[in-house]
Amino acid sequence: MTLSAAENPLFEFLLRQGDNALVLGHRTSEWCGVAPVLEEDIALANMALDLIGQTQLWLGYAGEVEGAGRTADDLAFLREVYDYRNLLMLEVPNGDFGRTQMRQFLFDAFQVPWLTRLQDSTNTRVAEIAAKCLKEALYHLDRSSHTVIALGDGTEESNRRMSDALTFLWPYSGEVFKVDATDHAMAEAGVAPLPSDLHSVWLETVERVLTEACLTLPEGTFAQSGGRTGFRHTEHLGHMLAVMQTLQRSYPGAAW
């Protein structure tokens, strides 16, 4: 039915971008109405809205590239767990506000240099989408890094919580740098750089912010993987999709 990653690496690449935005946007939207303070509630909703918008762009283009007539909504709401290509870090539950912010920061610290480079993609659609997403990502990084710094520096309790968040998330944070055939195909075609090329700039940002946040960079280099290849997601994604896809699955063909 659909082509494999090897047969259509651009489609695979676009799913990775779109699914990251989709899954993180979904998780972020779970904060609506229950954030620590109104101002943060509103800020988190803005973040989620940006990510939902990014999802529409990436998955919309993915559907075109696939050429099977699937829309962004079809891809978002009617795929199975193993068809998702998001990073594991983005699908694990939010945890407390600190963990949500730490995850956002670790992701944003990659997204900003990544989208910056994608603006020079040989694929003009990719370059256009990246340019739009980059503006949003720059603000996200600004906000998440300041929040991580404030919470790391704030009180004994907040420092401990942020430290726990970092310990929990760190093994997931390296997944994006594990390159595979799809990444190489994209690099060779000039569509995208190898994610691993951005590791040092990512690490630089992370180190700088964590230092200011009075947090210690974890030493471990082990990275969980299986999200962006779809080989092995966490158990959490299935639950997330069960919620997210309920209407589309329960009422096939209905328009909303």
Partner: peptide, 30 residues
């Protein structure tokens, strides 16, 4: 009032509906 509608944000049937609803519930916070 954010809560009864917030109850459906994660189950909104399309990306557009999800964005509409989230923007609306966010307005209520505002």
């Amino acid at each position: 009032g954010q809560l009864p509608e917030g109850n459906w944000i994660t189950r909104a049937p399309t990306l557009e509906r999800k964005a509409n609803l989230l923007a609306k519930v966010q307005d209520e916070a505002g």
